[in-house]
């Protein structure tokens, strides 16, 4: 057993003028790492998980901020988590993103941390991927040979690894947020703030009257990479969200995940809690889609809201 080093090793910092220069530098310096808020990079360096000689400071680069254009909602990679948390636009159109952003770390962390960092660090329990996945998001990447767009689901490839090619960096994420889509992100934690999720669940629901026209559920912290639950269209689209459909969706989420046991819970418990949170997130998202959820009311962090969702109907009973 060894003690953790007390200070990060020295590094050289390159400050590019724009994305193109950043990408050129990254391509020319294999192993160089982009840094924006530094809330993951600095810890990794201090713990010896990351031993790069070059840091590429992208914190000042304009990646577009938060822009809505029709159904497309684009968020730049250097947008801080705090900007997402406090965005009026997002609270109205994609509350799941706000609900994920507001539970990430502390205010101080959220002031520094960026969306791009949260996605590219590829922590299995990251807050932002599940809500972005349920909006069918794509990721815009810039590289030495130009830009390309990938499905966000293909960005993370494992804990701490991504499909970014050498020299590539994430520039922005575009979510599909059609009018009337309801969404929600909730999670289970040990304490009520400054905690990683034991399980995080996002849901998006589109309806036509009482009939579901689209249902997506995204999971975090319960598989090596954040994931969408497959097969939900089969059970939900064209149906009313009755208890049977909710229970089936919850069961599919439970069966699709592959959690581990650690200080934040046993694998069995996490599967159980994924089912509970899936049903809750869907109900809250559906209530938002139908306009029956109070405007401006964020879901409680774990979705347990006996006042709005009567207690015994909060989820599937075992």
């Amino acid at each position: 057993m060894t003690a953790a080093p007390v200070a990060a090793p020295a590094a050289e910092v390159f400050r590019p003028a724009d994305v193109a220069e950043a990408v050129r530098f990254l391509a020319d310096h294999p192993g160089a790492v982009p840094i924006a808020g530094g809330t993951d990079v600095m810890i990794d360096r201090r713990l010896g998980r990351l031993s790069t000689g070059w840091l590429v400071d992208i914190s000042h680069l304009d990646t577009g901020g938060i822009v809505r254009d029709g159904d497309d909602l684009t968020i730049g990679a250097t947008t801080t988590i705090r900007s997402i948390e406090t965005s009026r636009e997002l609270a109205d159109t994609a509350p799941a993103l706000v609900e994920a952003a507001r539970v990430l770390g502390s205010v101080q962390i959220r002031n520094m941390a960026t969306l791009g960092g949260n996605l590219c660090h590829a922590t299995p329990s990251a807050e932002m991927p599940p809500p972005l996945l349920v909006f069918g998001s794509s990721a815009a990447l810039a590289g030495p040979s130009g830009e390309r767009s990938i499905d966000l689901a293909d960005l993370a490839t494992g804990p701490g690894t991504t499909s970014l090619a050498p020299g590539e960096m994430l520039v922005s994420v575009t979510a599909a947020v059609p009018d009337g889509i309801g969404s929600c992100y909730i999670r289970q934690t040990i304490r009520w703030a400054m905690d990683l999720a034991g399980a995080g669940v996002a849901a998006s629901v589109e309806t036509d009257g009482d009939t579901v026209t689209a249902l997506r559920v995204g999971l975090g912290a319960v598989s090596p990479i954040p994931m969408l639950v497959p097969g939900l269209d089969d059970i939900a689209v064209g149906h009313v969200l009755d208890p049977d459909v909710l229970a089936e969706a919850a069961a599919r989420a439970r069966d699709a995940c592959s959690p581990i046991s650690d200080a934040r819970g046993t694998a069995d418990y996490r599967r159980h809690v994924v089912a509970v949170l899936t049903a809750r997130a869907i109900r809250i998202a559906a209530a938002r889609a139908r306009g029956t959820w109070p405007i401006d009311r964020l879901a409680p962090p774990n979705g347990f809201d006996p006042e709005v969702l009567p207690g015994r109907e909060n989820g599937p009973v075992r």
């Binding site: 040990i190 304490r191 009520w192 703030a193 400054m194 990683l196 650690d262 200080a263």
Partner: peptide, 16 residues
């Protein structure tokens, strides 16, 4: 040790 740090150990925050 699964939680030998303030992140995993579970000390309450002001929100708790």
């Amino acid at each position: 040790f699964l939680a030998p740090n303030l992140h995993d150990y579970g000390m309450p925050t002001a929100a708790d």
